[in-house]
Simulated assay, not measured.
Amino acid sequence: MNTVLHKANTRGHANYGWLDTNHTFSFANYHNPERMNFGVLRVLNDDRVAEGRGFSTHPHDNMEIISIPLEGDMEHKDSMGNVTVIKEGDVQVISAGTGIFHSEYNKNSDKEVKFLQIWVFPNKKQVEPRYDQISLKDIETENQFYQIVSPNKTDQGVWIHQDAWFSLGKFTQETKIEYKLHSNKNGVYAFILNGKASIQGQRLEPRDGFGVWGTDSIQITPEKDSKILLMEVPMSI
């Protein structure tokens, strides 16, 4: 079994006034050769966007982009004709494929938006671009992990062009869980959104990241009032 620990205060950080962002992996002006990716998980940005501000129109290609709002409302527009608002309790996915342009703005003038921006290398390039967005309200459960991303169109959550599975867990009480990996070629990267947890004996606090690979399962003990995102991804790009 192999592990890697990324404490919250060791992440890359930038504050542009309108955007306050922390980068778990190298991104933009933050470059750390020891933090380029975790398998096919390329970007994990923890963003805070000021009232009425946002990302102007910009391009992407050949990347699976997952956005998970944590607070507030973000307006999305893209070259595929989608104009939507994503908010806390939603998950959004864009398969950039052959190329898209999009913009993202804080829709509110009285509060900031907090969201996770996650990039995953796809297992198929030059696919037709696609967009999807769902509310998690109908599938979320307490005190266990529930799936929000998978490679399968018919599974719960949104799907992406990669053999990856994301799960969220919101815990109102201390719980002991065994998470079994879908493949021995995968690893799991856990990101603590709120509260505290222990994974394979490693104690973790808010915004800590912890990766585990080379095992069939991991032991997770979330503490009371914690929220955790698990990202199971192939370790070979």
Rank of each mutant, 00 (worst) to 15 (best):
G17N: 02
A28D: 07
N29K: 04
H31E: 08
P33A: 07
M36D: 03
M36A: 04
F38N: 08
R42S: 12
R42G: 03
E51D: 05
G52D: 14
F55K: 10
S56E: 12
M63F: 04
I65G: 01
I68W: 01
P69I: 07
G72A: 04
K77L: 08
G81D: 06
T84P: 01
V85D: 05
K87M: 15
E88S: 15
S95W: 08
E104Y: 14
D110Q: 15
E112W: 15
V113I: 09
I118V: 14
K125D: 08
E128M: 11
P129C: 03
R130H: 10
I134P: 03
S135W: 01
K137T: 04
I139T: 02
T141V: 15
T141N: 01
T154H: 12
V158L: 13
I160W: 01
Q162N: 02
A164H: 11
F166I: 04
Q173K: 09
T175H: 03
T175E: 02
E178N: 10
H182W: 04
H182I: 07
S183F: 14
N186P: 12
V188Y: 05
Y189W: 13
F191V: 09
I192H: 09
L193P: 10
A197K: 10
S198G: 03
R207P: 11
G211L: 06
V212R: 09
V212H: 09
W213P: 13
E223S: 12
M231A: 09
M231D: 08
